[in-house]
Write a protein that binds this DNA or RNA. Structure first.
Lengths: 127, 127
DNA sequence: ATAGAACTGAGAATCATTATCAAATGAGGG
DNA sequence: CCCTCATTTGATAATGATTCTCAGTTCTAT
């Protein structure tokens, strides 16, 4: 575990939202001014492979990284970009796939939504 | 509906699998030899916006396009890349989100799997 | 026919990510 | 301590998918 990898992991542990590689790079630079963006990607991938963190693939945008490796899903606010954890029960779908002879490995579920805050702000504007 | 857009739509209607923009481009060129890749993207996006086709965003690969606009999900075989339709029931998750004041707009669900054919081929190799 | 709008093909630009590679770092054995 | 060898780094080039730009072409409606 190199100094760089430790810093990247610290940044992720401390983050309250799911960060993109570029955001992690910026935050890491505050601790190690000439860390390279390539190093950030390299270590994020390594940490994913080791199962220490998890990559959340957002279509139409950069991937984000999540320190919570428990299986869970995400809801993306299309207005403000906030990414919130949530959890779907896909047991029935998995069973159906297995019944067809398919081996299920994992999933990537993104729910597009408008979050509570954005809805409230819209209402305020209309008033 | 320009000639180009009609060709692109025909290609999609005729396809038995979900094609990427590049694959659609290749197939369209068989009908109109100097159609541009930009035109393909432009029309695919227009058709999506009109709700005539649907974009399936595959993390870590090019987007695919689907003429089936009914809400449904997809299972991707990580061995052979085959993309199969499937359908999850996310009613409970949607209800939970709505209960929290979130407006649900849609979703993108991709199940990673190993398809029946790939499993059978692996067994044959081992034998 | 003709003006204006919409669309095209070609290629440049963009963005996220990965690959490359010489230099820096680190751990273990003498 | 110093040397060796492997790992990792930072900088930068390369890649791949997609979007943008723009001059030229094709519709459309009068």
């Amino acid at each position: 575990m190199s100094k760089q990898r430790q810093i990247i992991l610290d940044v992720l542990q401390r983050a309250s939202v799911h960060l993109s590689a570029d955001e992690i790079y910026s935050l890491a630079r505050a601790h190690l001014k000439n860390i390279g963006l390539g190093t950030v990607y390299r270590n994020l991938n390594a940490l994913c492979q080791q199962g220490i963190i998890r990559k959340i693939e957002i279509s139409g945008g950069p991937d984000r990284y999540d320190r919570n490796i428990e299986p869970h899903d995400h809801a993306l606010c299309v207005k403000c970009g906030a990414l919130k954890d949530c959890s779907a029960d896909l047991g029935e779908l998995y069973d159906a796939l297995r019944f067809d002879g398919v081996e299920v490995l994992g999933r990537n579920l993104l729910v597009y939504c408008i979050c509570k805050d954005c809805i409230e702000n819209t209402i305020k504007k209309v008033e």
